[in-house]
Write a protein that binds this DNA or RNA. Structure first.
Lengths: 338, 338
DNA sequence: CTGAAAGCGCTTACAG
DNA sequence: CTGAAAGCGCTTACAG
């Protein structure tokens, strides 16, 4: 516990071997004979030795760190996914033997300046980026700079770039729709965003196709912005159309809260009189007891970190991007007769 | 842009000086004569040179990195503050010339294992910790291990430890109460948490003392858990007591949403018929157009980073912990006749 | 399977 | 005010 760092030299002396044998025990254990390995490992354990990451980085020209830009959102529903994803990245990093260096580009001249800085100062080997969007300059920049990276979110407009993972919104909404069908709700409507948003269109298609697959005409639907007032207003009309005993699948938890409000206003109880579902498993969904779809953030973080790790080892890019199915979180708002 | 890292050697050659002169230009610019300094700086700029942080760390035995543990919350209202705080830390880190290494202790044997690991591997010089609570083992451990740190949140039960910053909840609620008074609401009630939580008691005192200071008897109050249903139920009674034209200051945004619901249920319009305020400026407050108190996260992050930096330089501990006043964010829910 | 050499890119003393 | 030396703690070749 007292200071005076323990170095590889101390371990070597204590174990009666040379320094590189200790190094080998750590990095290439297969190069040592069983007994030697065990002895060295025992000493490492006993002394609580941990190689200095600075020395390792300098020598190996690898930092073992992955950079992740923290985006400053105005929209809070983003925070609700951003934080858990950051935590997931931190949790998975341990298993991949790397550290997470988070940074902000606020105040930077360009959107990629922060990235360039970390690369030049060699503080990270690679990046995970989130919230890719059409026109995002980061994938191109990283690609050209030859810096390994993986993205949470499709890399728009670049079908040649496959190092990404995303949530399968269509599959998620298919699960939601089947769940609502199985629960016995009659008409199943949809409240989404205006057409043209890829994420929104993707989610909506899951609802539509499932209904079609079950021989139902896709019920009533409405679209509004991601705003509580707008959602509440839109919900009034939809509620009339689906009627009591029906359900409304929403593109987001916020929209679902709007539907819940509108239902309450007319005295309909969520679950009992009207089924309501959201997407994201944000805090609001829990507070309002709303059925929702949880994003598989841990699996995605793990996959992404595995991807950059492979690229670092010189492995090939994956054949295609990866889609992860969200998990249905059933709550009272989709429980009939609750 | 092409590879082949630029080292201090390249800069030295190009500038016609020795390597340590380049180093001095970066670290001790006052040691160089004006013209030499300018020439070296010009070359650094031109070549885009950035010292390798690995080499710097190894030599100086300083990583220039600050560790920050990402706590995995179940409670989502925590996420809403945790993420912006993490972002604030990232933003402020630039100005302090350090990097933020975020990590998770999930799956660790003990609550301090993650910290011990990062210290032994020398990946960080210091830590910022958040969410300190009575019985928290981290301050003690860090203290004993001699690792500099600063806490967001008081260090409970250790008046001798002063490296912390916290939000001044009492001052915040005093501002809220004055705001409500100035807006002309008659009776000003309070919806808080059961007594005994230091944060809750602190906030409540701001409301009580302000009312007293204005010669008003502290109005009706109620307490409930941090739960929407409980808040809504508690709000019904409070609403009766304060009456139309009154206001209810709440200990959190969630409780405020409960009040808003209860008010809506009886047809009272927030702002017009009843004043409502929350605390935290979470996403919900924005969605429900609720007046709230924004935490001064950027100022706190900056202060905390400054603190660890000073400790690293061997400076003294501050005289006492620092309290930061939150900022009132006025919205429709406290605007009479809105 | 194990060990002596060289060096990653800096900075911290110390001479000049 | 500037420069030649030494070394931070490792790992990567390469001998033995």
């Amino acid at each position: 516990m007292s200071a005076g760092r323990i170095t590889i030299r101390d371990v070597a002396t204590a174990a009666g071997v040379s320094r590189q044998t200790v190094s080998n025990a750590l990095i290439h254990p297969e190069r040592l004979k069983g007994p030697t390995l065990e002895r060295v490992q025992a000493v490492i354990q006993e002394l609580g030795y941990r190689p200095s990451s600075a020395a390792q980085s300098l020598r190996s020209q690898r930092t073992g760190a992955v950079g992740f830009e923290l985006l400053a959102y105005g929209e809070s529903n983003r925070n609700e996914v951003a934080y858990p994803f950051t935590v997931a990245l931190g949790e998975m990093a341990i298993g991949h033997g790397c550290h997470l260096v988070t940074f902000s580009s606020a105040g930077a001249q360009s959107l990629t300046e922060g990235y360039a800085d970390m690369v030049r100062a060699q503080v990270v080997d690679a990046f995970v980026i989130a919230d890719t969007h059409p026109g995002d300059p980061r994938p191109d920049w990283l690609h050209q700079a030859g810096v390994p990276y993986a993205a949470f979110g499709r890399v728009w407009g670049r079908p040649d770039i496959t190092s990404w993972a995303d949530v399968d919104g269509a599959a998620g909404l298919a699960d939601v729709t089947e769940h609502l069908l199985a629960a016995g709700y009659e008409r199943i409507g949809y409240l989404g965003w205006p057409r043209g948003s890829s994420v929104g269109d993707d989610r909506r298609s899951g609802w539509e196709h499932t209904l079609l697959a079950y021989g139902r005409a896709p019920g009533p639907e409405a679209a509004c912005e991601q705003d509580l007032r707008a959602a509440t207003t839109a919900a009034y009309g939809l509620l009339d159309e689906v009627g009591r005993g029906g359900a409304i699948a929403c593109a987001s938890d916020l929209l679902a809260v709007g539907v819940e409000r509108a239902a309450r206003d007319r005295g309909w109880r969520p679950g009992t009189d009207i089924g309501i579902t959201g997407v994201d498993d944000s805090g609001m969904a829990g507070m309002f007891d709303l059925t929702t779809l949880a994003q598989p953030l841990t699996a995605i973080a793990d996959y992404l970190l595995g991807l950059v790790h492979k690229r670092l080892e010189g492995g090939p890019a994956p054949e295609s991007g990866a889609l992860f199915r969200p998990t249905l979180v059933p709550r009272a708002s989709s429980r009939p007769g609750h």
